[in-house]
Simulated scan of single mutants.
Amino acid sequence: MALADKHHCDTLDLIRALAAGAVCISHLRNLMFVDYRSSAAMGLAGKAFYFVSNYGHTAVIVFFLLSGYFVGGSVLRQVQAGTWTWQRYLTERMSRLWIVLIPALLLTMFWDRLGIALGGGSFYLGTEGTFDQQINVASHLGGATLACNLVFLQTLACGTYGSNGPLWSLANEFWYYLWFPACFVLLRQRRGFAAFAAAALALATMIAFPSLLSGFGLWLLGVILVVLERRFAARSVRTGLPWFTLASGAAFLAALVCSRLFLWSNDWAVGVPCFIFLRCILWENVRLRPALLSRIAIRFSAFSYSLYLTHFSFILFVAAVGFGHRIQFDARGVLVLMSMLVACYVYAYTVYLLFEQNTKRAQRSIQKFRFVRATPDSVTPHSGSRGSIT
């Protein structure tokens, strides 16, 4: 870690990249390898792998906090600067979501239909016994389900499309993106029919979708990070190690370990220590060094959204067609794990180059239309949405 000598917090990029990797590894383990209780003659290294490779859901909680910090923070800045418009905000958010979601849905259709046609068997019927895939995939490949996922109603009015179970969190993100500005703009401006209508819609959907409220609370913790950052200035000079960051990081790791040992199902038990850890990182201005580590963190963070949306159906296809059954985590299993991890990252990076990398270009093209002209935003540290899933 290094003293802050740059505005962008690459430490948050590292956390985001690690969270995306945790999701991918979790699904690799659950789809390709037998359950822990079915493993044969497993050594200490195997036991360690099974222990640390099941943090996929926890990683999404981290994404929620980062999303609140970046996306919610951009709302706070724009409203305060007087540049806020729903047109601009929705253009940015929807283009950011759809530019990867639409290709990901089509790729899910491709891998699932090909896997079913090639005799994927129990993996696609949901009878292989893996926790992450327990549905008949063919019944989730219809046009209605596709449309439902496009408008972010998966898990609320329909299932996730095909085998792509990770899509569940995208519905959460979308509604959080709407709820927060709808409520905040009303509280800040307190005038205008549009503000009251948006707040009423937010309240109605909160009542209609109560399952999203706990995650929204965690998302709001990310917004609180922005508020605290404004009220309490970050350290400009630091001598020695960032002790608060190290201590809070140790507490966060302890919470992660305890969540596995005691099977905690409460997301807040991990979310609150993560919030404290992120707050300490921002307060102590923790940055990465050497420069190579910083560049790697930024690069892998850049395509984490593509990785998140594309890996599952690809892994399922390889497991079902390439192997036909789940395998033991032995020496061969280690080789399979490493090969598949590399393949998933190369695959996701290709999707990133084709689609996600062009997000800004797509937004500029949309903003050329007269009805969505953008007002320049003030430049502030950590601007953008690099830390969220999207």
Rank of each mutant, 00 (worst) to 15 (best):
L278G: 05
S236R: 14
N136Q: 06
G142L: 08
F369M: 11
G21H: 03
A250I: 11
L337I: 00
G68Q: 10
V226H: 12
R370C: 04
L141N: 04
V62L: 15
S95A: 15
A20N: 07
A251H: 00
I207W: 13
L228N: 14
A40S: 02
R295W: 09
F63R: 07
V75F: 09
F300D: 05
L178W: 10
S95H: 00
W219S: 07
H8S: 08
P242C: 09
Y308D: 06
L203F: 12
S306L: 10
R16W: 08
L307R: 06
V318L: 12
F63M: 11
N149T: 07
R326S: 01
G115Y: 04
F180M: 13
L212Y: 06
A251T: 02
G322K: 06
E356T: 09
F193H: 04
F33I: 02
L309E: 08
V237M: 04
F303H: 11
A247I: 13
L167G: 05
R326M: 06
C258K: 06
E356S: 08
K47T: 00
R231Y: 12
T91L: 14
C9M: 13
V321T: 03
Y176D: 07
A331Q: 04
F123T: 01
R373P: 01
A198E: 04
A147C: 11
I135V: 14
W283K: 15
P381A: 13
Y352V: 09
S67Y: 09
Q189Y: 09
Y50N: 02
S339H: 00
S383Q: 15
L31V: 08
K6R: 15
G142S: 12
D132K: 02
T160K: 01
R188G: 01
L256Y: 02
R238A: 07
S301P: 03
D132Q: 11
Y308R: 08
C183F: 15
L220T: 10
L253Q: 01
S304G: 15
A81D: 15
